[in-house]
Design a protein around this nucleic acid. Structure first.
Lengths: 145, 145
DNA sequence: TCTAATGATACCACTTTGGTATCATTAGTC
DNA sequence: GACTAATGATACCAAAGTGGTATCATTAGA
């Protein structure tokens, strides 16, 4: 449902957002986030071309956020890397559904799907950043996931 | 997220549940539900081996529900045909998550996932059947989906 | 015995996903 | 101006999942 592209992108964007530097290089993130180098590079380029990151070429270059962390939502990343978020693509696309149970199933799924999208759209880079609220400082380490 | 196997299975089970006959043949459902014959057959066999359907071989045979329609949940079908329902498989499986944002992302996704599962588990064969409540009789046909 | 049905199994094509490799381009630094 | 550290662009590849096909074996009623 959420692919590595999206997952990695979210982590990389958080890393960039939390960095004090003007720009962060791909290599720095490879070390910090344990993402395969060529894979991460391709991913960052996509984010650049989508206008989420801005890039600086040449020595001393790297990537920086092009927009405010609060405006970059998880749903947007999913859209970029995975296309539409659909829990179920109705088998009977343009035709009439053959019976009521069929339509009802679709209605249920659609309703759940709307909720999921609503909740995913509330997750942004900002909402995942360490700086967001004070309770962050209490935690010492991450836990096994 | 929800594959054709699961979708078809749900429709087929509803069809069987609504049938007045003691058992329904695969061929009858092929005509009614527009599912490719060999594909439906494989699917019905899986449902039989999982104990959701019981089958009768030989002439006059077919399939019938092995359990009450209310006990067959959408989540169970998803489990059979697609394995676990996971919105996101954490990239850092057994290791410690490298930072807090990572864990927080996982927590958000997990929470959404739990909600989805809860709602999917409320959908059963019974809840999709025509007989379930009176309003069914008013509707004349399905609509385009 | 014939035939209508399911059981079992093997196979296949297409798409998505995750990842690699290569070369071109840009821009600081010596 | 050459060197080098960085991104841009593009093409390629392997594994897995999905959707579907084909074939033969088995069962049981007429």
């Amino acid at each position: 449902m959420i692919t590595r592209n999206t997952d990695y992108a979210m982590r990389a964007l958080c890393y960039i957002a939390e960095s004090k530097k003007k720009s962060v290089t791909a290599d720095e993130m490879v070390g910090a986030l344990r993402i395969p180098r060529p894979f991460l590079r391709k991913l960052l380029q996509q984010l650049s071309s989508e206008g989420i990151l801005k890039s600086f070429k040449g020595q001393g270059g790297g990537f920086a956020l092009a927009r405010k962390p609060g405006s970059v939502k998880l749903t947007e990343l999913i859209h970029i890397f995975q296309g539409t978020v659909e829990l179920n693509e109705c088998v009977f696309k343009k035709k009439l559904c053959p019976n009521r149970a069929t339509c009802r199933l679709k209605r249920e799924i659609d309703s759940i799907e709307r909720d999921v999208l609503e909740r995913l759209s509330r997750v942004s880079i900002a909402s995942l950043m360490n700086q967001e609220n004070g309770c962050a400082r209490v935690r010492r380490r991450g836990h096994a996931g």
